[in-house]
């Protein structure tokens, strides 16, 4: 941060402890992280390393046990549930491994729902939803329901939904985890295009080939984050 301006998204001494009966599990330990405008960061690590937990903490879905998350320098992680929900709606976009589309709604309506929650007018949300679906290559599949779409198409709808409110940061949790290699490649290609257009992206994956297409790779192991891969 040579300019002195606050990072778009930052974490300081971020810790998340889960209590299971008598045991405490430290899923995320003392993580410090800065995400700047235009970044494309991949967080890699084995299953259970805490990378998804970190993503949910960064995305204000979960609350840290210690430490803090800041958006543009403002502490956001300690806000109440509803204020964090408002921040998520306005500043953050989410893409999930299992797509998490509403099965009863068409592709267009799934994108519109995010706009609707943000209070966008009916006419405007239809225009934006159609434009986004065109952009992710689903111009001809707008009326299809998730069950009528392939895995790759569903993830494209999920990306369009995540972009609906023009978020500052797109957070993707294993976006290719449920896709075959070719489709996964296409989805990462789409994320690359978005990043080239200025979209900041944080992606969690256990696939090094996918992670290799990000601008920056961070490694997660036993809840700790590092710039370099563990030696073992």
């Amino acid at each position: 941060m040579s300019s002195g301006a606050p990072a778009l998204l930052s974490a300081r001494r971020l810790t998340r402890i889960f209590r299971l009966g008598e045991n405490e599990i430290e899923a995320v330990r003392d993580v410090d992280l800065d995400i700047d405008q235009g970044d494309f960061v991949a967080i890699v690590g084995p299953s259970g390393s805490g990378k998804s937990t970190l993503l949910y903490l960064l995305g204000l879905i979960d609350s840290p046990s210690a430490g803090e998350v800041r958006i543009r320098g403002e502490v956001a992680s300690h806000l109440g549930r509803e204020r964090r929900a408002r921040l998520r709606l306005r500043w953050l976009g989410f893409v999930f491994q299992t797509f998490n589309l509403l099965q009863l709604l068409s592709a267009r309506q799934n994108v519109e729902i995010a706009l609707r929650l943000a209070g966008v007018s009916k006419k405007e949300r239809r225009r934006r939803a159609e434009s986004l679906l065109e952009a992710v290559g689903l111009g001809k599949r707008m009326r299809h329901r998730p069950v009528q779409l392939s895995g790759g198409e569903r993830q494209r709808v999920a990306i369009a939904r995540a972009l609906a409110n023009e978020p500052d940061i797109l957070l993707a949790d294993e976006p290719t985890g449920n896709l075959d290699t070719q489709t996964g490649d296409e989805i990462v290609g789409l994320l690359e295009q978005l990043n080239q257009a200025g979209q900041t992206i944080v992606m969690v994956t256990h696939n090094m080939a996918i992670a290799g297409r990000a601008k920056r790779i961070l490694h997660m192991r036993d809840g700790r984050l590092s710039d370099s891969a563990p030696s073992d």
Partner: peptide
Amino acid sequence: TKEIGTLRAIGAPARS
């Protein structure tokens, strides 16, 4: 549960 959780995750306010 999953659908409602997804809506909450993407920012749906409690009132919605």
